[in-house]
Design a protein around this nucleic acid. Structure first.
Lengths: 132, 132
DNA sequence: GTTTTCGTTTACGTTAACGTCAACTTAAGG
DNA sequence: CCTTAAGTTGACGTTAACGTAAACGAAAAC
């Protein structure tokens, strides 16, 4: 016999934790903060592909140094396409603001990368001299 | 009469705090953590251009989401060109590691920017429709 | 000269983002 | 059926990065 539900594409909390190398505590914490809202089977959490996709976005935001609050703003706005003009305008402002942060960050990133690469070259040169 | 010391290019803690929009507490905290080591005139701190330059690096690191410990590693290594082979090799490893983090970050950044811009377009389109 | 103002140290408070532990329920394996 | 493993909900602990407040010295302004 087959399983009762075919489970087209669902994940347990441990699946996601394993795949993305975070703890289950972390995933539950994100849920407390309203960043994830998995389905429930009784008490157990069931994650679908869209939950997984959200987690990807959250972790990407973290790697970029955003706080969970900021990630919250972006991710939820992403998925709830408000239909009223004032909300749309507010959303647009949020987006633009974040874009500017990211552009600043890109500048920082490129400067730092250049300096890092220069330092690497210097370091290799020093090593080469030393090892005569 | 001139000032006793011509003060070729020095700053008070408030100068720097003002220029970079951080609190004096923050600057002192960075000193506690060993990130800054300003000269002293009695008790007062005197910052020179190289201290300012370090602060610039620190703040850039922060905008990139690095912890003060990580910034510490990079910034100090930058300025203390160790001369022994093992240290040079260790330094090189640190540099390479950071470079990889930054490259990952650049990828994240570009993906996010693209998605943001797409969302902005969608949003503007929705607004245009609404305002018929 | 004295009253602000600026800077200092010391110390405790705070927030975000989890870690860790206990006590429990449910599911699964033997 | 019993044990073990996995998942759950609290609850308290922890660390980083400062904020905030008290108590003081020095110097600048009036």
């Amino acid at each position: 016999m087959n399983k009762a539900t075919p489970d087209l594409q669902t994940f347990t909390i441990r699946d996601l934790a394993g795949e993305f190398d975070v703890t289950t505590r972390t995933i539950r914490f994100y849920e407390d903060r309203g960043l994830l809202t998995p389905e429930r089977d009784g008490q157990r959490r069931i994650y679908h592909k869209r939950d997984r996709a959200r987690l990807v976005l959250i972790l990407r935001g973290k790697r970029l140094g955003f706080s969970l609050d900021e990630i919250q703003q972006l991710v939820t706005a992403y998925e709830t396409p408000e239909d009223e003009i004032p909300q749309l305008e507010q959303y647009l402002r949020t987006l633009t603001e974040h874009r500017e942060t990211l552009l600043q960050q890109k500048e920082d990133l490129e400067k730092t990368l250049q300096e890092l690469e220069q330092a690497e070259r210097d370091c290799r040169a020093a090593l080469a001299r030393k090892q005569s």
